[in-house]
Each structure stands twice: as C-alpha cells, then as structure tokens.
Write a protein that binds this DNA or RNA. Sequence first.
DNA 1: TTGCCTCCTG
DNA 2: CAGGAGGCAA
Length: 135
Amino acid sequence: MEGLSPNHLKKAKLMFFYSRYPSSNMLKMFFSDVKFNRCITSQLIKWFSNFREFYYIQMEKFARQAINEGVTAADDINVSRDSELFRALNMHYNKANDFEVPERFLEVAQITMREFFNAIVGASVLTLTFPKSHL
DNA sequence: TTGCCTCCTG
DNA sequence: CAGGAGGCAA
C-alpha cells in the first residue's frame, strides 16, 4: 500500500533541484530502493506536481514584487543565493539546509523569473491596450 | 480507459 | 502535502 517514507519525500525535494518534470522512468532510477506500483508512481508524480505549484506561485509572487519595485527590464532580474526568491525556495525544498543547491538551479530559477516577469508585463499591456469590454 | 497534469481545497 | 474535479492525450 505504501513504501514511501519521509526520507523519500526529502530525497524527492532534493531531486527537484535538478529536474522539475522527472519522468516516471527517471523516478524509478532515482528511487531504486522502492518497489514501484501504480500508487507509488502516482504518489511521486503528485509530489512533483505539488512542488511545481509552489515553485510557480513563488515565481509569480516575486515577479510581481519586482514590477512593483520599479523593475522595467527582465534582464535586471537576477537570482542568487541571497535572493528572497531563493530563500523561499530553499526553505521549502531544503528546509534543513543540509544540501548544497546546484548552481544550475539558480540559473533556471532566474530564467523562470524573467519569463514570468515578461508574461505579467505583457498581460498588463494587453489590458491597457484593450480595456474593459474589449477583453 | 489509463496516465499525467493543473487547479482548487483543506 | 493529500484529495478530488476536470481536461487531454494515448
């Protein structure tokens, strides 16, 4: 019925730093000590789905914050280990802070942030161009 | 139908 | 995070 321990959850979170969309096969390799069945697989996939939700919610949150703080160019957005965004994400996926988050994750997070920034700015431009009834 | 995903709740 | 609803592709 189960097979996934709290440690597996912690391990999954660390894996998230490397891939946001691990395939079921990748999961099977990463969790080679687990006897997979539909429930286990679904469980793990659900975890990553939840991880992504949190990730994207934070992205939108901080992208809007940057806009409100006056940032006008996506290129002015940078994500480093001392960024508020990173602190929020690290707190969520690496609570114990006993793992060194790969540099690659910072790069990806920054790219994501910029994409959200542009998407939000773009959307606001639309509402300004086509106000009220026209949308 | 099955599998995976997002969205929304609690 | 778990559950359930609902969309979508295989």
